[in-house]
Design a binder for these strands. Structure first.
Lengths: 153, 153
DNA sequence: CTAGGATCTAGAGTCGGCTGTAGGTCAACC
DNA sequence: GGTTGACCTACAGCCGACTCTAGATCCTAG
């Protein structure tokens, strides 16, 4: 229980967030931090536990495809303090919709990929332990011409 | 039933694939087509129905995050003809794994986002018709310090 | 016959998100 | 007291995937 509120160097934060020191300076430059990063002797950055927690939120939002400018907007709102909860909520909901849509799109793509994987599996091992009833990518059962020939691709 | 096997101009293909004419030329330049795109009088590109079908596959693979170099690799394999099914299968399986992982990651992120959305919804309308039993992002129920304070972000 | 629009090639520019480099400061160790 | 090693600023460079521009060619319609 020694260094609980000690303050961390940029290197330490890089290590425990997985971001590079470059990225950390870049994020700061881009105004992504809610509180200005403190400086220690010699002008070195000193990160608080809160900074690190905020960063982990940033990382998750980034990982889900939120662009930096949106993240900055969110940081701006949080920095402003209470009274803009509606705006924060809107921003988050918008992002939620994006992520949900993206998951949907990926899932659709996965159908095609699975279908193709199935085709090649059967091709390579027709004594199929993999013999499902049907390989067709279920959703697009429309008037698309038979996928018989797309075996060649 | 007039233009079934007619051959399409680059503009027509752009229109029906959603790709730009620029992107179509770029894709060709990058070797993403299985068959060289035919040329009509005056050196103009003439796309076949097969080309368009291949493009739609490309679009789906791209939309699921496959980088162009992998797409080119796949096109190379298909162009080579039969006999490399294992390699095609490997490539597809690898991509399938990426997409699956990405969906997983996005779904995790969505948990946090939903949690935060829930927090702000409650904050704005505490007479909650949205009063779920609990907002906590289910998976990470570890020793993380209480999310009480992250209400501020 | 000429004007407009679609196309062509080749190459430059853009954008997001970092990453790398140059040149300098500072504290600690041998 | 000299050498690491971590850090600092400022800015250039990179990567992927297009997108735009310039200048030429070609087809069709009026």
């Amino acid at each position: 229980m020694a260094e609980v509120t000690t303050g961390l160097s940029i290197g330490q934060v890089a290590e425990r967030t997985g971001l590079s020191v470059h990225a950390l300076r870049f994020y700061e430059h881009e105004g992504l931090f809610v509180n200005p990063v403190r400086r220690g002797p010699g002008g070195r950055r000193v990160y608080s536990q809160d900074d690190v927690e905020w960063l982990t939120v940033c990382i998750i939002l980034r990982a889900s495809g939120m662009p930096l400018h949106a993240l900055r907007r969110y940081a701006d709102l949080v920095r402003e303090g209470a009274g803009n909860a509606e705006e924060r909520l809107m921003l988050l909901r918008e992002h939620q919709a994006h992520v949900t849509a993206q998951i949907g799109r990926l899932t659709e793509c996965l159908d095609l990929i699975r279908f193709k994987v199935g085709v090649y599996e059967d091709l390579l091992d027709p004594g199929s332990p993999t013999a499902r009833q049907c390989h067709a990518p279920s959703p697009s059962a429309d008037k698309e011409q038979a996928p018989t020939k797309s075996i060649s691709s």
